[in-house]
């Protein structure tokens, strides 16, 4: 039995706005073991990014607040930490890569300065030494001629290069956990593959645990050991990658998979999931997925389903696996 690095228990994060309360994350629980990769999948608005921002405690306060639950990182509850204690964790123990490499770097500093800043602030290094380390990091993430690139400004680099720089910043202090929030969504397909390959290699090399957030099941099948599928702020299916992919149990996961174009099969047209993610201010009664679900029955409209075990370590939030379904 390997060690647990991160355990999220019953996490609820709500946004308090003029339009009302939006439960962006609603009772989410999962575990991540050391050195493993957890994939969080869902459409935009499903709460996957808010989950990661909650772990980093980077929510736009005071509008967004963790209202319930625990985030145990090495047994320490991050929810209870002060901002100052959290600053010690961020960057050093938990790092994050964001979706938009084009805007994730500060335009007025060289990439070298931005990487070196981590070493200067977190490890109290001298400027010169930090610069050397920054060059090393650039080499590590596969940027050619790092000695000259270190003095480049972000606008002088391509999107893929910038994402490599962002990864270099995130990995600078060799964190135990790396959260990647759609790290390849904004990149060209060819670059996507390179970046994913790089992340996989670095993860092996540095023994980092990884949370991979994406809407792309293809990426999950490539990278993840375990999968959590989110919809409307809740987990609708979770389990090991193999279990979930081979014994897919939730109609939403099915829908996500069917909407991926595949070359191997001759399909007349792609099946998209009907409808849209409902507004968080107006969540459907009963099962949150029922307005878009092809199997929906009366019970789905009236009763919210529980997360039920459908296989070894494999859970699904669907009435089809409850006794009430056939009645």
């Amino acid at each position: 039995m390997s060690e647990t690095l991160l355990e999220v228990k019953n996490l609820s994060t709500h946004f308090f706005t003029e339009r009302g309360v939006a439960p962006a994350v609603d009772g989410v629980s999962f575990r991540l073991e050391k050195g493993k990769t957890l994939g969080i999948v869902g459409e935009s608005g499903s709460g996957k990014s808010v989950t990661s921002l909650s772990i980093m405690r980077l929510l736009q306060e005071p509008a967004g607040r963790i209202v319930d639950g625990q985030i145990l990182f090495n047994g320490r509850d991050l929810v209870k930490l002060t901002e100052k204690e959290m600053q010690e964790i961020r960057g050093a123990h938990i790092s994050m890569i964001f979706q938009e490499p084009m805007t994730a770097l500060n335009p007025v500093y060289t990439v070298g300065t931005q990487i070196a800043e981590v070493f200067i602030v977190r490890q109290k290094m001298k400027k010169k030494e930090a610069r050397q380390k920054a060059i090393e990091m650039l080499r590590l993430v596969g940027i050619p001629s790092p000695e000259t690139r270190v003095d480049n400004y972000p606008h002088q680099l391509s999107g893929g290069m910038r994402q490599r720089v962002v990864i270099a910043i995130a990995l600078a202090c060799n964190p135990e956990l790396l959260i990647a929030d759609e790290p390849t969504t904004a990149l060209d397909v060819t670059i996507q593959a390179q970046i994913l390959e790089l992340m996989k290699n670095l993860q092996k090399q540095l023994h980092t645990s990884l949370i991979m957030i994406t809407h792309d099941l293809g990426i999950i099948s490539e990278m993840a050991d375990d999968v959590v599928v989110m919809y409307c702020g809740q987990i609708v299916e979770s389990g090991t990658m193999k279990e979930v992919f081979h014994h897919m149990s939730h109609p939403y996961t099915e829908g996500l998979l069917n909407s991926i174009p595949r070359l191997s099969e001759e399909v007349e047209e792609l099946t998209a999931i009907e409808g849209m993610v409902p507004s968080l201010y107006d969540i459907p009664k009963g099962c949150r997925f029922h307005p878009r679900c092809p199997y929906a029955r009366e019970i789905c409209r009236s009763q919210a389903p529980e997360l039920l075990e459908v296989g070894p370590g494999h859970c699904s939030r669907c009435h089809r696996y409850s006794k009430a379904w056939e009645e």
């Binding site: 600053q87 961020r90 960057g91 805007t103 500060n106 800043e117």
Partner: peptide, 21 residues
Amino acid sequence: QDYLRTAKAKGLSEGRILRCH
């Protein structure tokens, strides 16, 4: 801006973020 979130994710203090970024 997004790059401020990056700066926060680096674990910088609020004062340093204001001053430097």
